[in-house]
Design a binder for these strands. Structure first.
Lengths: 125, 125, 125, 125
DNA sequence: GTGGTCTAGACCACG
DNA sequence: GTGGTCTAGACCACG
């Protein structure tokens, strides 16, 4: 698992974990139906508390990205078509960043290229 | 000032303020070189703590979006070309959202259109 | 036996088994004095651990719904009139659900109709 | 707050708390828009850990029964009309209990009266 | 062996 | 002062 936690960051560890796990799934390194490491083993690997990993897993379950199977583990869900709610979530997250890019003087072309580039980077490797 | 604060939201008030001020600047409602309302008056308007508005202004200064002139007030900076650092900031903010959209099954076309749409809404609306 | 176990559910398998067996008895599919399948065969059928089926059977015996005859098997009891204790059990189970329905804004008419509907579905279908 | 926790029960403390708080709301003792005690004060009152109360509050928020306002407290939501999902939740909870009552030999009339009685007890005090 | 629950205690961000 | 986050450590239910 290529996960790196910055304990000095002011982003909560469980949020860092959520983001990095999403990144690994987006990059295809963690595949649908593939089991994630147990909360205990991942916590030991990363040197963080079991509860912190557990919170990240539950956050990902809430986002419908994985399914926690009690006493067994967690597996990545196979999502094919985004739901209305998921598109709305992405829109709400995107809004303030687009605004910020405009304020910085970026052009539509630039922000669109950037989004496109990042998309390809995940998809292709 | 068309700012609405949701005191019950779990997004900190100062973050809401930062985002809404960025939105107003992106939409051209607050223009470069235009002075912002004083910390005191904006706080009174919104019914929030003075320190909260102050924190938002300093956050915007840190982002180089406005300039705080002690004893005088704050003015919107005139940003024409994004700096390396600002592009890097936007990239870092965009990354986890693009990843999340991929995990939800969104296509490149969809995410690019969404970014483009949001960009236009600010610029034209 | 029309029993379906969801191994990914967060309801324990033995609880699912208890509920489904109660459902089959309520629907008249399993009849009084009729022997249940052996722990071993049911476990094999469902692909679950023998101990899990055993635990479910003992839970049903504790509820006085079936009788386990050691070395022989389990048979459905013929219950005609509910005991005080059974009515008390049902009351205790019902209480928090009625409370939750009230909190959700349901009317007495609605909850009573729902109970009545579910009753008929078991009895007639 | 008339809440009693049984530490010896095998029902998790946070579940007991959830049920009792729902009961207090159903009975109108806790009213819509009324603030609940802080997690710390309620935990101290009941002699349980802060995190346990916190978990109960979050569970009630998930059920849309209250709203947690970070740094401020929690307030009871004002629910007027049950959503589809809430009716479905109640139905799923009711099902196995209705089945169990049938197995015990209860008649439709009895179970309906019981539901009606419990409803009235909450509503009228 | 796994996740679930709970405790005790700590520091922090927000306002 | 509040909830949010995190840790360290414990016992338990399930299977």
């Amino acid at each position: 698992m290529f996960i790196e936690i910055e304990t000095t960051s002011d982003i909560p560890i469980y949020t860092q974990l959520v983001n990095q796990l999403i990144g690994l799934i987006a990059a295809g390194i963690l595949k649908p139906n593939e089991p994630l490491p147990s909360v205990r083993s991942l916590a030991a690997d990363l040197g963080v508390n079991m509860h912190t990993v557990n919170k990240a897993y539950h956050e990902l379950e809430r986002k419908n990205i994985l399914k926690i199977i009690p006493k067994s583990g967690a597996v990545v869900n196979d999502l094919k078509i985004p739901t209305e709610q998921q598109i709305s979530t992405i829109t709400q997250l995107l809004k303030p960043i687009i605004a910020e890019s405009i304020v910085y003087g970026m052009q539509e072309e630039e922000i669109v290229s950037l989004a496109s580039l990042l998309f390809s980077e995940y998809k292709e490797g």
